[in-house]
Design a protein around this nucleic acid. Structure first.
Length: 389
DNA sequence: TCGTTCACG
DNA sequence: ACGTACGTGAACGAT
């Protein structure tokens, strides 16, 4: 994958870069207008002086070094009180995308081959995941409109198509498997939309009565639980009261008692043995699980419950990658495996191999590591990375 | 080199 | 009262 690289359409990036440049220029003018002076917008220090001293806005949160924070959640809160924070949020979003992705990826693209080559690091992440660097191709934007435009610049070689295959809600399926939770196992066995199913159980209603907002809440709980989320943390994410968040967590614990038991037992196991492990026995040592400092200890407890899930997912996709590679060799295909993004594999395939590859990839991903829960994989093709989803 | 911020799963 | 969901990598500013 490192040597193969992936093809970049520099023309697309150049156009995005120009659009971003003019939009940023406009925002800069508006920001200086509101601030009443010019300054380095990217300097949190200079920005802090403007926001909290000159304009006298509230200090919502402090950084680890005790300075007034200007992070996104702070600016969001201040945006109702002054026009400047909203402009800064827009500026930060666009300058991040331009500087980190659009301009950098363009520069790193080989002028002849039009391809870009990352490093996949095998011995960095403590959970067993891969990481990607120089450049990191595992954090290419996708959540915003401009971000999605950047994905369109990742294209297949001439005449071929990109194929993306994603595990569907794999973390929660592994949680169901490891905890052997009856309700969670049943919902997956029934092929239900898991967040809707959770909402129905937690709110004691029919699945077809679940409202958008209830599903959103259930989704945050589902994803928060395997990380050991606190009532306060969940409240931040939901923008709800701590009270409501706490009730949601308690209701979840009553709904999925075996998950709750597994979380407790996994922390106990870490205390007893000094490590936790994945389904296949990959270990992570967590010595601070016995720390006298409560903050340090709590952190170790969250690490302990998260690693078996995240690590088993990493084990699973690695097995799938090896098996897919072997079969590609055996069948002598031209298709190439290009990227891995934790729960996703990206390939480029010639048109005549598309049907074969779709089937081969789905089969090997689904069957890589049997966990007693149905594993679902979403496979799509397209003219670029965005369209392949 | 460190701190802050923010991009992804 | 403490700090507050896990795992990463990179850009930028300050020192």
């Amino acid at each position: 994958m490192e040597m193969e690289g992936i093809c970049i359409d520099s023309g697309i990036l150049r156009e995005i870069s120009e659009n971003l440049a003019s939009e940023l220029k406009r925002l800069e003018a508006a920001i200086y207008e509101q601030a009443g002076e010019t300054f380095k917008i990217g300097s949190t220090q200079q920005l802090g002086v403007i926001l909290f001293e000159k304009l006298g806005l509230r200090v919502v949160a402090k950084t680890s070094k005790g300075k007034p924070s200007t992070k996104e959640s702070v600016l969001l809160e201040l945006a109702t009180e002054h026009p400047l924070p909203g402009l800064l949020l827009d500026w930060r979003k666009l300058s991040k995308l331009k500087n980190t992705y659009v301009d950098t990826l363009g520069d790193l693209t080989h002028p002849e081959t039009r391809r870009i080559h990352t490093d996949f690091n095998q011995t960095v992440a403590a959970t067993g995941r891969l990481s990607s660097s120089n450049p990191n191709l595992q954090n290419i934007p996708v959540r915003t409109d401009v971000g999605r435009e950047i994905r369109k610049a990742f294209v297949p070689r001439e005449g071929w198509t990109l194929l993306a295959a994603d595990y569907v809600q794999i973390e929660l399926r592994i949680l169901a498997s490891m905890s052997e939770d009856k309700a969670l196992l049943q919902d997956f066995a029934d092929g239900k939309d898991i967040h809707t199913a959770t909402a129905a159980r937690v709110f004691h209603i029919d699945p077809d009565e679940v409202e958008r907002d209830q599903r959103r809440k259930a989704k945050e709980v589902n994803y928060g639980i395997p990380y050991g989320v606190s009532p306060w943390g969940l409240a931040q994410r939901l923008r709800s009261s701590v009270q409501e968040a706490q009730e949601l967590i308690e209701q979840y614990q009553r709904t999925y008692p075996d998950v709750s038991r597994w979380l407790v037992e996994t922390v106990e196991e870490a205390r007893d043995k000094g490590y936790v492990e994945t389904l296949l026995g990959r270990r992570r040592y967590v010595p601070t699980i016995k720390a006298s400092n409560r903050i340090e200890r709590s952190f170790a407890e969250r690490v302990a419950v998260n690693m078996p899930i995240q690590g088993t997912q990493a084990d699973m996709i690695k097995i799938a990658m090896v098996n897919i590679h072997r079969r590609m060799q055996a069948e002598g295909v031209q298709s190439r495996m290009l990227l891995q993004v934790h729960d996703e594999l990206v390939f480029e395939v010639p048109p005549e191999e598309e049907t074969t590859m779709r089937h081969l990839i789905e089969t090997e991903m689904v069957n890589a590591l049997p966990i007693g829960v149905p594993v679902e994989v979403d496979v799509n093709t397209g003219a670029n990375w965005l369209d392949a989803h």
